[in-house]
Simulated assay, not measured.
Amino acid sequence: MPTSAAATVDLRTESLGSVFDRVERSLGVKLDRSTEVRKRRSIGARTDRGTWVRVERRPRERIGGQGWNGVECAATLRGIAMPQWLAGAAWTDPEDAAMWRADETELISAPPVKPADRAELSDTWWATLTASLDALAEQTTTRVATPDTDTISRSVVTEVIQKAFPEATIDVSLDEWATAHADLSWANLTTPECYILDWEDWGMAPRGLDAARLLVSSLDVPEVAERVRHERRDDLGSRTGKLMSLFYCSKLVPYVDEGAPVRAEALRLLGELEPLR
């Protein structure tokens, strides 16, 4: 398969029978196909021994020097509400320009947070999330975060912001870094018990990356956005945190209407970050 084709494969529409057979042989499990949860680049299912297996496909050019065993490496983290990692397997297909990886983890029965759930999350839920993100930020790693499989860097952040706002004159200096999950979407958080799922992209990142991702994805529900601001106020209030919020807003601005909350938030941030003339 040509590299361009490999990069555009959507696992939500692919037939994966042979992949599942390979996973079952490698990990010594049977997958319950009726429990499949499909995403664009990953798919998961329960096993016959009461665990969960997540299978990911990634184009080879998206696999950097640190590898792509993020779920396995996350087993070293402490003080975080997350599934326990148990086993893994990886392989390449000579006829495909991509690699496959399967990770078996503890089964978390709590479902992902749905849009209607966000405004009803308990104080205990928020306390667990806050404590987990604080504990994560205190730990160090040689890994570098790869949100959307792109290694985070000043150049990547600058490119995204300038594409959305070519006239912007802000200084994209990322002075503070901390360990981050790097894919903290609502789909990767569970309720009523709070667990953080899908650790393939974690690593060092500009401060506030996770909080910014959660904030920007909450702007359509103002009370939820305000709760995120409150819980992660130190990160989001830092200059680096504001740049991360603008970074995630800028990813969406080209695709939203003029009056969209994400555009208003981006303009507010630009006003705070651009130098006085």
Rank of each mutant, 00 (worst) to 15 (best):
A5Q: 12
I63C: 12
A225H: 03
G259R: 06
T149M: 08
G70T: 02
P115C: 09
P206G: 01
A131T: 15
M1D: 07
T169C: 07
A87T: 05
E72S: 12
W126G: 06
A205N: 08
R40M: 09
L270D: 00
W68C: 07
S218P: 10
P94F: 01
L184P: 08
Q162E: 14
D220L: 10
L31V: 12
G70A: 08
V160T: 15
L276V: 14
T140K: 15
A260H: 15
L214M: 13
T149K: 11
V157Y: 02
T128R: 12
E72P: 00
L246F: 00
V53K: 10
S34V: 09
V37N: 07
E56A: 13
E24D: 11
I161L: 10
A168I: 03
S250P: 03
R118S: 07
G259V: 04
L77E: 01
E106A: 13
D117Q: 08
S15N: 14
L133T: 09
Q139Y: 13
S217Y: 02
E138S: 11
E231Q: 13
T142H: 14
V157M: 06
L121A: 03
V256H: 05
E106K: 09
R277G: 10
R46S: 11
S122C: 06
A137D: 04
G241A: 04
E14G: 02
A97C: 12
T142M: 06
D123T: 14
R60G: 05
P112N: 04
G50N: 11
W199V: 13
V19D: 03
V55Y: 02
R143E: 04
W202E: 08
E167C: 00
W202T: 09
R46K: 14
S15V: 12
R58F: 00
A97K: 11
P222R: 13
S42A: 11
T35D: 04
Q139F: 11
P147F: 11
D171P: 02
L267N: 10
R41K: 10
E193Y: 13
S217N: 13
L236E: 07
A45G: 05
Y255T: 00
L236R: 05
R40D: 03
A212L: 04
G271E: 12
A7P: 00
V113N: 05
V221W: 02
